[in-house]
Design a protein around this nucleic acid. Structure first.
Lengths: 126, 126
DNA sequence: CCGAAGATAAGAATGTGTTCTCAATAAGTC
DNA sequence: GACTTATTGAGAACACATTCTTATCTTCGG
């Protein structure tokens, strides 16, 4: 059966829709509480898990960090994370590049890639 | 002061030296116990931490996994992880490739890259 | 070889992220 | 509007990796 249309579910979906970058549990919780003050952490976990099971949400696993969440269906992409403002920027266009690193005889099926540095704004201001 | 020369410390160093791929705590523990049967998990953690503080050991953080450990001083490199045999293979030569993905105006300072698929052996046998 | 100080084993304790429990609440149905 | 049933909030419980505690053992300087 399809899930009931609760204010909490709508709030979480709104947060994910309005934000371009992937978000952590705490960020989703605090932003969601601006719409539904009573929103609890357990509910955020519960709803995100359901959305993932239904394929509406995907996780972004940065090395050594807890997962971030974003709406799925964006196609293959990676992220540039700014060390100053900590924002994440979507990066595309890795097709063909990564293949050049695969050892002879190996079959590449997937890859993870994360870029770190300064975004254009922080670079100018810093 | 320099650390005392114990059998446990030598065993862990041997394990890291003899293995080309980065290892997890459990692997280091079980391999090390072949040399020093009494080796305990706490000691593995303690000695690895010391080796990291001294810069002799570095961690490899795969997304969504606990850290792996390898001897440092290998220069910049990445890994290809085989889904079948779960072995990790060192990959080098990313220079210049990653830069092509950096958005205009951004300053790239570091990156993580992980390749997944089938190694040559598993590809032939599977 | 002795003794002081550091190192170890084992398990207890901790920390963190996530899931569970259950009484209270709210959605959707008739 | 009342009923049935899913959903929620709050905190307890859990899982797990990691660190701490302490009594015992080992290294190494003298």
């Amino acid at each position: 059966m399809s899930p009931r249309n609760t204010a909490q579910r709508a709030a979480i979906l709104d947060v994910l829709t309005e934000t371009e970058a992937p978000l952590g549990i705490e960020q989703i919780l605090s932003k969601g509480q601006q719409a539904v003050a009573s929103l609890s952490q357990a509910t955020v976990y519960r709803i995100l898990k359901q959305m993932m099971d239904r394929g509406h949400v995907a996780t972004v696993q940065l090395p050594g960090q807890t997962p971030l969440y974003e709406l799925s269906g964006k196609g293959h992409h990676h992220f540039f994370r700014c060390w100053q403002c900590e924002q994440m920027f979507e990066v595309t266009g890795c097709e063909g590049l990564v293949d050049q690193l695969v050892p002879r005889g190996f079959a590449l099926e997937d890859h993870d890639l994360f870029l770190y540095g300064l975004c254009a704004t922080c670079r100018r201001n810093g």
